[in-house]
Amino acid sequence: MTNDHFHIRLPDGGAFTCRPGESVLAAMQRYENAPIRYGCFGGGCGVCRMRVVSGTYHQLKRMSRAHVTVDCEREGIVLMCCITPLSDLTLAFSAC
């Protein structure tokens, strides 16, 4: 079965939809209450760093290790510009 979109849930209870293959950050641009600012969209600047609390995703591009260390990545910290969902996702802000 293929999904035509996934639900991305935000820490404030808001949610938006993301198409398969699309980066979570690109989808978030269509959502008016986005909780983060938009930076480089290239995995370099780190301003779209969040934690994936539940759900699975595929990494589209490399994330700068200046912003997501190997240990952080194991804890689900990712840059929203670098991942696309493979299921519905729940996101959080949390330090690593």
């Binding site: 930076g39 480089c40 969209f41 290239g42 995995g43 370099g44 600047c45 700068s64």
Partner: peptide
């Protein structure tokens, strides 16, 4: 603007 690796 940003190039693809995020350098401005």
């Amino acid at each position: 603007f940003w190039e693809p690796s995020g350098n401005r």
